[in-house]
Nucleic acid binder design. Structure first.
Lengths: 138, 138
DNA sequence: TTCGTTGCAAACCCTTTGCACGCAC
DNA sequence: GTGCGTGCAAAGGGTTTGCAACGAA
């Protein structure tokens, strides 16, 4: 099972043109083992939970690489840190401004009927919809 | 004209429960003189263009105060800096991921037919829609 | 050998904080 | 005098960079 997972992850990396080094596999495994949102710091901690295996610089480098290769997505909601999202399917987010919790919204639920025309000389890159919330009793 | 503007700004601040000190008036003037998006740094530079008049700490303090009082809005799109938006009417944004340029989209153009139900024990805080773009020729 | 990858530490940048001074009521 | 507002400098925290060491082809 673990072996299969690892193999799958290697293949995933290779399929995106990323040579699967052991550090990259560890980082990818951490990202994809739970389909939640992670900060660079969480990945770093998660990968080095038992013993130090990957350095901070490598985590940042690798996340940037995965991002560039379209393996993960960046979610910019918290001014103090970037979150990475292993779910690259079209979807959007609830963001709790107090707790920092982020949860998914299926794209079909909030689809916009028509996108406005883009500014001149610009091409579409992505659409982010963020619904900011706060705890009810606060 | 200038006098009138200043008076209007003072009243605006007062109407939000903010005592209009000279620094706050300068910062508010910088924010509202052009209805574009500003970073804390731009405000700092703009206010001190001719001679140093407001310190960095005061700019940050004042922007936070204005934000809390609902005079301006925060726009979180660029991982490296927070932008402040003097337009508090409902609207959304185009964001150029290369140049960092931000431009407005009128709310009516992209309104979402139905908001998804909020997670349990959460209340609505705000809705941000960001259409990320890049220059066409890049 | 060669080039891509990693690690460590320092550098960076935006933002926040601590604390003393100054002004208004 | 009391309290809020301001300024300066330093600290803080996430992210990036420079460079040497390493490892696979």
């Amino acid at each position: 099972m673990k072996k299969t997972d690892t193999k799958t992850i290697s293949d995933l990396l290779r399929s995106r043109g990323i040579s699967p080094t052991s550090q990259r596999i560890k980082i990818a495994t951490a990202l994809f083992s739970e389909m939640t949102h992670h900060s660079a710091d969480q990945i770093l901690a998660s990968v080095n939970r038992n013993k130090a295996e990957v350095s901070k610089a490598t985590v940042y480098n690798t996340l940037s690489l995965f991002l560039k290769k379209g393996l993960i997505r960046e979610v910019i909601v918290d001014p103090s840190k970037i979150l990475y999202d292993p779910n690259t399917a079209e979807h959007h987010h609830f963001y709790d401004v107090i707790t920092g919790e982020l949860s998914d919204i299926d794209a079909s639920v909030v689809s916009i009927p028509k996108l406005p025309p883009l500014p001149h000389n610009r091409v579409f890159e992505g659409l982010d919809i963020i619904i900011r919330t706060r705890p009810a009793t606060a």
